[in-house]
């Protein structure tokens, strides 16, 4: 029975939840902007529509270009098996946090190589920014993991991100949450690092890398991106939200994800995109936050 529940939860998290989360982010942005906004499941409809299409491939590209979306989604799905949504993750072992971080690196590697395969300067530009920013986000993520693993006494995501028993206000947790939130925004190309809505190639990071993808490939990419955002949001939620009495683990997770979506939506509605040269400063700030959190752990 438990296995069945876990499998059902995994399927839901892997297939539907990411789009609901994105839908809520978009609804929040629309509400703040005084608009009605697209339906909550709009991105899911987009993915379904794309899955039904054919494709156009640039004559410059090779199999690397076709491999990118497939491996990117496979890596993100594999990372999803390690993340505890309600109660326990599908797969857990001591050290899975490292695998989690490296699976995202794999997804980034294939996305970047697929983008470079087109020979387009725009996509080269996007890749170059993507790898530059993630080279600063990675230390922040690992530092946060170090701090959490030390607190939890375990290097498994399930243990490190176990829900707090009460409302947690320990400064180290606050700093870890802050650092993770910045990493979440940067890694998922949200504002203030990258604007997911912009249509000007020169200003984009993630979107510009997938300019040449279409059809099922683009569907894989969009779904993978939504899933990645969800996974990191789940971790963040588990770090801050105690189990709400009466809601249970699942209800708490759902409520927390809604909260995360609103938070992301509010950030996106109230902030402008940073100038590119200032993004590294933001990421270094997130490393510093993680480092301070760690210092508090040293007591």
């Amino acid at each position: 029975m438990e296995t069945l529940t876990a499998a059902a939860a995994f399927a839901a998290m892997a297939l539907v939840v990411p789009h609901v989360l994105l839908g809520l982010v978009n609804k929040t942005k629309a509400a703040v902007g005084g608009r009605r906004g697209p339906p909550v499941l709009q991105t899911l409809y987009d993915v379904r529509k794309l899955l039904g299409k054919g494709a156009v491939y640039s004559t410059t590209t090779t199999w690397m270009f076709r491999l990118g979306p497939v491996v990117g989604l496979a890596a993100t799905l594999a990372a999803a098996t390690l993340v505890p949504l309600g109660a326990v993750p599908l797969v857990a072992f001591e050290g899975d946090a490292i695998l989690f971080a490296y699976l995202f690196a794999l997804a980034r590697f294939v996305t970047v190589t697929a983008a470079l395969d087109t020979g387009s300067s725009f996509e080269g530009m996007g890749s170059s920014r993507e790898v530059a920013f993630s080279s600063l986000a990675e230390p922040a993520l690992i530092l946060t993991f170090a701090s959490l693993a030390h607190q939890a006494g375990s290097l498994s995501l399930g243990g490190m991100f176990s829900p707090p028993t009460g409302v947690h206000s320990a400064a180290s947790t606050v700093l870890a949450v802050g650092s993770l939130f910045i990493v979440l925004l940067a890694e998922n190309s949200r504002l203030p690092v990258d604007d997911p809505n912009t249509h000007l190639e020169l200003t984009m990071v993630h979107e510009v890398m997938v300019l040449d993808h279409g059809g099922p490939d683009l569907a894989f990419i969009l779904h993978g991106a939504a899933l990645k955002l969800t996974l990191m949001a789940v971790l963040l939620v588990r770090l801050v939200m105690p189990v709400v009495p009466g809601l249970g683990a699942w209800g708490t997770a759902a409520l927390g994800l809604c909260g995360a979506a609103v938070a992301i939506g509010l950030v996106e509605s109230t902030m402008a995109r940073l100038r590119l040269v200032h993004v590294p400063q933001l990421l270094v700030a997130s490393v510093c936050a993680a480092a301070f959190g760690l210092l508090l752990n040293l007591r």
Binding site: T60, A132, L141, I142, A146, V287
Partner: peptide, 29 residues
Amino acid sequence: APTASLLALVGALTVVALTKFYGLVCLGQ
């Protein structure tokens, strides 16, 4: 903690250097 974060930095920079190597040599026109 400092060792791990420096290793993470090195690891991420490796991705920059090696995608540059493979991407510039093998991909594009």
